Amino acid sequence: MSKNNFIPVNTPLLDGNELKYVTECITTGWISSEGPFVDKFESALAQYTDRRHGIAVANGTAALDIAFSAIGLKKGDEVILPSHTIISCILQIIRIGAIPILVDSELKTWNMDVDEIESKITSKTKAILAVHLYGLPCRIDKIIEIADKHNLYVIEDAAQMIGQTFNGKPCGSFGHISTTSFYPNKQVTTGEGGMCLTNDDDLANKCRSFRNLCFQTESRFVHKELGWNYRMTNIQAALGLAQVEKLDEHVVLKRKIGNKYSELLKDISGFNLPLMETEYAKNIYWVYGIFLNENSKYNAKEAMLLLQEAGIATRPFYYPMHLQPVFQEDKLFEGQEYPNAEILYNRAFYIPSGVGFTENDVEAVSKVLIDLFKV
């Protein structure tokens, strides 16, 4: 396959009111965070996720930073989260001086193993970060049950799962604060962007303050707390509103792509396909993951390199937190083992599946995989 036919790992779909709304921003001059589309976008996604408040921010990492500060996370507090996740989840915990407490993952769903959580709770535990990964939500019901029992905060990282449900209830609606991302590979994209979602008035006000440098209403330039300039622009929000209008269609497309892959790849013995569903959710296929099994001729790095040579982009699964060089230097997780997180990194990766992906693209990628893994 030539470079001209290279298939990227993600292709966004911008075929709704995106151009119309962005043009309105430009023609009216409202391009900053003060523009009207910010409120419209916040209201639309809050309504979609059954939340009272949406607070749009610059990106998904910013949403996590703000959420941890809003719940009052302090130095010495502990936060439970999976080792197998993106580094954004841990950054503000570390910077505050709080302590990340890791749990391992399930090999079937690729999500955090909730059965490990309760044994990690101490008198210092402040919160659980519930991270939904790849296409199926984590067991958020059990996480909330544990958190309620121990009087802990729950932050739901729904970055990959907007449009998904857990037992019929929308992801993004669970816990004290939910966070999301609008990077181009998400079901809703603003290029860069994120949002905090909550039903709590006090937490919502804190999130709004932290995203806007903690300006005060009465004395704007007198600051009692330190915040960030994490505001979203009106242009980004205009894109986001148009994307929310098409969200249900994007979810249908994601599932269509995932189901087509599963149909075409079902007879390959070298890897396991994503679960199509569990008792609490049907896979939304945020990405289509390939989990190499004992019959595989390759590890993840080898397979990804061969696919790249064939003109197909891939991405690895996350590198485990306990192995990150930046944390090993400080001996943060010294002596800790999370074997499933390591297995997922070494044996799993994902293939192209953006909402702008076509059936021909699915067939082209599948053909290469079938040829690559044929006995």
Rank of each mutant, 00 (worst) to 15 (best):
Q236M: 08
E294D: 07
E279G: 01
A310D: 13
K301P: 03
L239I: 04
Y318W: 11
A242I: 14
E225V: 03
H250Y: 15
R211L: 11
E337Q: 01
I257F: 09
N340Y: 06
K301A: 09
D267R: 14
L247F: 13
N234G: 09
L306Y: 02
E277Y: 11
L273P: 09
L332K: 06
E225H: 11
N234H: 02
Q236G: 01
Q236F: 03
E334K: 12
K224P: 04
V326T: 13
D248H: 13
Y298M: 05
I268V: 15
E225A: 13
S262A: 09
S262R: 11
E309T: 08
G270Y: 00
N293L: 13
Y298K: 03
V222A: 14
L323E: 08
Q308W: 14
E329L: 13
N293T: 12
V326E: 07
A242Q: 09
S296I: 02
I290K: 07
L226N: 12
E245T: 03
M304L: 02
N283A: 00
L344K: 00
P320N: 02
G335E: 09
I257A: 09
K297G: 04
V222I: 05
T217A: 06
T278G: 12
P274Y: 01
N295H: 09
N229K: 08
E337H: 14
F271P: 12
N229L: 07
A281D: 02
Q328F: 05
E277L: 10
A237S: 13
G335P: 15
Y318G: 02
I268Q: 12
L265N: 01
V244M: 08
K254A: 15
M276C: 12
P274Q: 02
M304P: 06
V287P: 02
S269I: 07
E263R: 07
P316V: 08
Q308C: 12
M232R: 01
S269M: 09
E334G: 03
Y318R: 05
Q336P: 09
M304G: 03
R231D: 07
E342K: 11
G258D: 14
A303T: 00
A238N: 06
M304W: 00
F291Y: 15
A238P: 07
G240W: 13
L332M: 04
I290M: 06
P339E: 01
L247P: 12
E302D: 01
I290V: 12
I268A: 07
E263W: 08
M276K: 13
K254N: 15
Y298A: 06
G289W: 04
L265H: 01
A300N: 04
V222M: 06
V251A: 15
S269W: 08
K246C: 09
L213W: 07
D267F: 10
A341P: 02
L226E: 11
R211G: 05
L344E: 01
I235C: 10
N295D: 07
